[in-house]
Design a protein around this nucleic acid. Structure first.
Length: 595
RNA sequence: GCCGACGUAGCACAGUGGUAGUGCAGCUGAUUCGUAAUCAGCAGGUCAGGGGUUCGAAUCCCCUCGUCGGCUCCA
């Protein structure tokens, strides 16, 4: 445990202690530190609400100020069980009811591990530790919110109240933390999306179904332009597939019946199809459609690799409680592509996919990222994983080699692979430290066979290709959600919905302002003029709030000289430029996608 | 889906049983201005929706929908 983690874990004990002072009957489950604080799960008839926090914090403060030492004691399993039965664990002494969660936890401690207690004051808890030396080492703390959580994270278990808090060694650090949270709130893509008029939701359209306003649509189209250029250069071909398909497609792919519940309910048509019900599903993924495209023509080894790319729209019936702004939606456009290749081509293709990721990271200034390489567990071949040990080993080695040799930041997570092959989840962190899974990258050596996909090899034999699923830009929804927070709404010029706003100082300059706008628009720059009768200060304020990267201010002086006065979003007044020099600078920034 | 909280004008919010309000945005008019807010006037609400309690409901109760904080889930 790191130092702050130890401190926060100790604070969780203090919280439990304080809860017991007020509600002696409270039953506790687990109380670990988290990345920014801690929580303790408690079962209590009283519903704890934020109104209780003041009272609890007062009790906690008393315990902290008492500078109680944390004392560790190794006890026998029998003693632990006995103390659990008498309600002493996570209690202030003997109680009428046993500490049943703690008893359950003791059952799960392997026989060879020692069992330890930690005490402070009259509070005793079953705990592996470690803890700070004394309660007064907890310099500053605050309770933050209360939520519910299933015991041991299993939805079949009862729900407990989870009290969250945070703690730091000093008051200054605590305040710094809350300041950061305030910053995070300002960058929240839901808030900025509303303020900048990027997207909206409507109850009549449905939850999790974003409606893209014109400014948000610009972001979508710029990203697609980038993806299309990049994929074209990398030898991808674009395809188009419908949003729906017959049930049979998902029977073939194996998605039914396992994933039916995360798909929208099927549409059942009146007429029959070959004696069966005629049932259609909205697609939840693009791969089956793409597999059908691969299978539509005879393929030779000379044709491989074949790379099909599509910004495909998928629909997933995510549980209602999981929807979150643009980050979790029910309709999404994926930067999808499927690469069909031979085993020999695999490493090179995979390498090229990785390079594409790195190129995008560079364009968007993503410096904090991690690839999570999920591999299989040999013990679970044939159950959780396709039973082909050699292919697993070979493929995983190739993926690992590519990751190592390209110097990509990655961790390997055993036993988390997909059924049909190893996968790579791409984690990124926005500027304020919020974590996102942007994309999932998968190797598939099972599903092509289910579709009977083959190519003819050089010996005139049929072989099944490997398939790489990749989506470096994830979905528009999540990627734009990330970008909004990453840039705090200050999109680089090439992405900005409005790139230039021209502001005449008075009505007399109106024509000159309109000339500049039409010149800019003639070479594709998204420019508008603010012809309102406001003073220039008000026009600037509005443009700044709308995060327009360039403001062009023109008055009599500029009109006479054929010049313009430039103000940029971040640098402020940049002085006077000729029209041509500004246009050149702008064109270069946009073409090169400078940030 | 589960637990809890919340839902008042386009946005941010006030209003705890007795005539729905403030600021910004919007519209109209005046102003023609040099780097983050010119002035004045006007308009804008089925208080999420439905039901109930009450002489009377934004306010109290029930149901539904949606949002938020978590949990579970994310092929």
């Amino acid at each position: 445990m790191t130092e702050p983690e130890t401190l926060r874990h100790s604070c969780a004990h203090v919280l439990a202690n304080a809860i017991l002072v007020i509600w002696p009957e409270a039953q506790f489950a687990a109380g670990p530190p988290t990345s920014n604080g801690f929580y303790y799960d408690v079962d209590l008839p009283h519903r704890i609400t934020p109104e209780d926090f003041e009272r609890l914090e007062k009790e906690m403060l008393a315990i902290v100020q008492a500078a109680q030492p944390f004392e560790r004691e190794v006890i026998s399993r029998e003693k632990a069980l006995e103390m659990g039965r008498s309600g002493e664990l996570a209690g202030l002494g003997v109680r009428s009811l046993p500490s049943h969660f703690k008893l359950d936890i003791i059952e799960r401690i392997p026989a060879h591990e020692e069992i330890t207690l930690y005490r402070n004051g009259s509070f005793t808890d079953l705990c592996a530790g470690p803890h700070v030396a004394k309660t007064s080492n907890i310099g500053a703390f605050r309770l933050t919110h209360v939520a519910s959580a299933y015991y041991k994270g299993d939805e079949n278990n009862p729900q407990l109240q989870r009290i969250y808090g945070t703690a730091f060694a000093t008051q200054e650090e605590l305040e710094e933390h809350f300041k950061m949270l305030d910053e995070a709130k300002k960058r929240d893509h839901r808030k900025l999306g509303k303020e900048l008029e990027l997207f909206t939701f409507d109850e009549d359209v449905g939850p999790g179904l974003p409606l893209w306003l014109p400014k948000g649509t610009v972001l979508i189209e710029e990203l697609e332009k980038l993806a299309k250029e990049t994929e074209f250069q990398a030898g991808y071909e674009r395809v188009k597939t419908p949003h729906i398909a017959r049930e049979q497609l998902y029977k073939t792919s194996g998605h039914l019946p396992y994933y039916a519940e995360s798909m929208f309910p099927p549409m059942e048509l009146e007429e029959e199809h070959g004696g069966d019900k005629n049932i259609y599903y909205l697609k939840a993924m693009n791969c089956p459609h793409h597999h059908k495209l691969f299978g539509a023509l005879p393929r030779s080894y000379r044709d491989l690799p074949i790379r099909f790319a599509e910004y495909g729209t998928c629909y997933r019936y995510e549980q209602s409680g999981e929807l979150l702004g643009l980050m979790r939606v029910r309709a999404m456009q994926m930067n999808d592509a499927h690469i069909y290749c031979t085993e020999e081509q695999f490493a090179q293709e995979f390498q090229a996919v990785n390079e594409m990721y790195l190129k995008y990271f560079d364009i968007f200034g993503i410096t904090r990222y991690q690839m999570r390489f999920s591999t299989h567990d040999p013990a679970k071949l044939g159950q959780k994983f396709v039973d082909d040990p050699e292919l697993w080993k070979k493929t995983e080695k190739r993926v690992r080699d590519v990751l190592v040799s390209s110097g990509i930041n990655f961790v390997e997570i055993p036993n988390e692979a997909a059924f049909y092959g190893p996968k790579i989840d791409v984690q990124v962190w926005s500027a304020i430290g919020r974590e996102f899974t942007l994309a999932t990258n998968q190797v598939d050596f099972a599903v092509p066979a289910r579709f009977g996909l083959v190519y003819t090899n050089s010996e005139n034999k049929k072989e099944t290709p490997l398939c790489i699923h990749r989506a470096p830009l994830g979905t528009h929804e999540r990627f734009i959600g990330f970008l909004i927070e990453h840039y705090a709404g200050n999109f680089p010029v090439w992405l900005a919905p409005e790139q230039v706003r021209v502001m005449p100082i008075s009505d007399k300059i109106r024509n000159y302002a309109e000339t500049i706008v039409s010149e800019l628009r003639s070479f594709g720059v998204r420019a508008t003029a603010d012809l309102s009768s406001e003073k220039v200060g008000a026009k600037i304020r509005l443009a700044q709030l709308e995060k327009v990267p360039y403001m062009v201010i023109v008055g009599g002086r500029e009109e006479t000289a054929g010049q313009l006065s430039l103000r940029s979003r971040h640098l402020g007044d940049e002085g006077t430029f000729t029209k041509e020099s500004f246009y050149e600078r702008l064109k270069k920034e946009i073409e090169q996608r400078l940030s």
